[in-house]
């Protein structure tokens, strides 16, 4: 009975979606006219922000306030997870069985390489695909690997919390500096530099480094909480 109701509901929703999509042919050039936002971003972003990657320019400058709200949501989710899993007295479970020698050596060998990859990706966010979010997630997955694989590795929560708060403050301070330099929150007030080189695009690399560190620390803390706090 329950699944029958579900199927009828799904048929209605699917029909509605199909009707909506029939108005929107796949692959049509829907940003052909000049007043569309996508057209403006594509044409003006290289001059206005100096960033070769237009998606980065949209995420960090045009929609930078949205991104600030997004890292706030991430922060709130991490706090919520810590609160839900909080328990006052720490009960020591039985220690996990250590991994085999080959696995431990492999994890400890791969860990710095994964960190370097993550840092590379968020440093080059304005030139190549990638950026703060992707690099931060790769850093976090490197820490996850080390946490599971290397037996003697302990995650020091205090350090991650400090990194995260510093990076979050750096984001807000960079935005405020734009306000102080005359203009608006998150205005790109620094020199743009040579297009398509590492030192270009003004405050975009700085903000993306801050986002990368914040996302990496946040997700590492989230996973460590999930691994340690729950019994």
């Amino acid at each position: 009975m329950r699944s029958l109701i579900a199927v009828i509901l799904l048929a209605v929703i699917g029909l509605g979606l199909a009707l909506c999509l029939s108005d929107m042919p796949f692959g049509a050039n829907h940003i052909a006219t000049a007043e569309k936002a996508g057209r403006h971003y594509l044409e003006k972003a290289p001059q206005e922000t100096g960033s070769a990657n237009v998606v980065t320019a949209v995420v960090v400058t045009y929609r930078g306030f949205d991104t600030l709200g997004e890292v706030t949501v991430l922060f709130i989710a991490a706090i919520g997870l810590g609160m839900v899993l909080y328990r006052r007295k720490k009960q020591e479970g039985k220690p996990p069985q250590p991994a085999s020698f080959v696995l431990q050596t492999g994890c400890c060998f791969l860990f710095p390489l994964i960190l370097i990859l993550g840092v590379y990706i968020f440093l080059h966010g304005h030139l190549t695909p990638g950026g703060g979010f992707q690099g931060g997630v790769i850093v976090a997955s490197g820490f996850l690997l080390a946490y599971i694989g290397c037996a003697d590795m302990k995650i020091r929560h205090r350090w991650f919390e400090a990194t995260e708060s510093l990076a979050g403050s750096a984001f807000v301070i960079a935005g405020m500096a734009g306000l102080a330099a005359g203009g608006s929150f998150l205005m790109n007030f620094m020199p743009k530099g040579n297009f398509n080189t590492l030192f270009s695009a003004g405050i975009i690399p700085i903000i993306y480094i801050a986002i990368g560190l914040k996302v990496g620390a946040e997700l590492t803390g989230l996973i460590a909480n999930l691994l340690e706090r729950a019994e």
């Binding site: 990657n53 695909p129 990638g130 950026g131 992707q134 997630v137 997955s141």
Partner: peptide, 8 residues
């Protein structure tokens, strides 16, 4: 960009 985020 999105492909990278989704894969990782």
């Amino acid at each position: 960009d999105v492909a990278m985020a989704e894969a990782s």
